[in-house]
Amino acid sequence: MKKKILCCIGIVLACALLLSFLQLLVVPKYASASREGNLIGEYYAETTPHDVLFVGDCEVYESFTPPTLWEEYGITSYIRGSAQQLTWHSYYLLEEMLREETPKAVVFNVLALKYGVPQSEAYNRMTLDGMRWSTSKIGALRASMREEESFLSYVFPLLRFHSRWKELSWEDFEYLFTRAKISHNGYMMQTGVHPKTSDRVGDALIDYTLPQGSMEYLERMRLLCEEKGIAFILIKAPTNNYKYYWYDEWDAQVREYAEGHQLAYYNFIPLCEEIGIDWSTDTYDGGAHLNVFGAEKLTSYFGAILAGHLGLEGHKEDAALSAIWQEKLDAYYRERNGTES
C-alpha cells in the first residue's frame, strides 16, 4: 500500500512538473513579435540604482534613451514602460520600484491619463505578466483586469495561453527559460525612418475631462513620491499623431494639476523646434513615435533640464558604475549602428 501511495505521489509530482514545463512552453516569448511584452521583466536584471525613473506608455520607452542620458550627463536612468501602459499600471510599477530604490526624480508621461478604465487584455498581459509577484502586482491586477479576465489565469498563465499549443515555434523552445533582451534600460530602439506627412489633428470629443480613474492614480503617484522626497515630473512626449492626440483641454487640466501641487510639467509638443526634432527623419511611423534619432535629441534636451533646473549630478567619476554603463553604451551603439541583429 505504501508503495502504491508513493507511486501516486510520484505521478502527481511528475504531472505538476510537466504542467510547469507546458506553461513555460506556451506563454508568449515576445521575441520577434510584440517585443514590448518583454520590457517590464527586464528591470529585474538591473544591479545598480537609478537617478531617474521614467514610467508611462510607448511615448516614454521610445522617446528617451538612458544610454544617451548617461553618455551626455552621467545620469543613470531606467524606463519602466510598456505598450498602452495605463496610469494604474505605472503607479503599481512605480510602487514596486520604489521598494527597491529611491531615485531623485520620477518622470511620468501624461498621455495615458486619457484612459479611465482598463482597455485591452493583450496590453494588460504585456505589462502585468512581466511583473514579479508582490502586493504591487496583485494591486495592478485588481485595477486592470477586464470582465473576461480571471486572476487565476495570471497565477497560471497556462489557463490563458494553452491555445498556443497549435502555434508553437522554435522560438518558444529557444526562450523556454530565458527571455530575449530587447531594451536598453527600458528604451526600445527603433532605427527606421518614416517621415510625418500629415498634420491632421484629433477628432473633436464630447467631453474633454480627464477621467477620474486615471487622475486618482496620478495623485497616488504624486503622494508616493512626496512621501519619499522624490521629485515628480510630468511630461508629454513631442509626438502628436491624430490617433494619439493630445488636446489643449487635457493639457490645461494637467497644467492646472501640476501648478496646484508645485510639480514640473513639460509639454514637449510646442518645443519640437527648440529640441531640433525633424519630422522627416526623426520618426519611424509617420509621426506617432520617435525613432532613435529623435529620441536622442529629446533626451539631450531633457537631460539639460534634469541636470540644470533640477540639479541632478552625474556619476561618471564612479569607476564601477562607469564600467557597467560603458557596457550598456556599447550594446546600445551596436544596435544603433546595425552591427547587432
Partner: peptide, 19 residues
C-alpha cells in the same frame, strides 16, 4: 492517478476555454 493526471493535462492544454 496516471489516467486522471493525463486527462487533466489534456483538458488544460487542448480544452476550448478562456479568452
Amino acid at each position: 492517478t496516471l489516467c486522471a493526471c493525463g486527462l487533466i493535462l489534456l483538458i488544460l492544454l487542448f480544452g476550448a476555454y478562456g479568452i
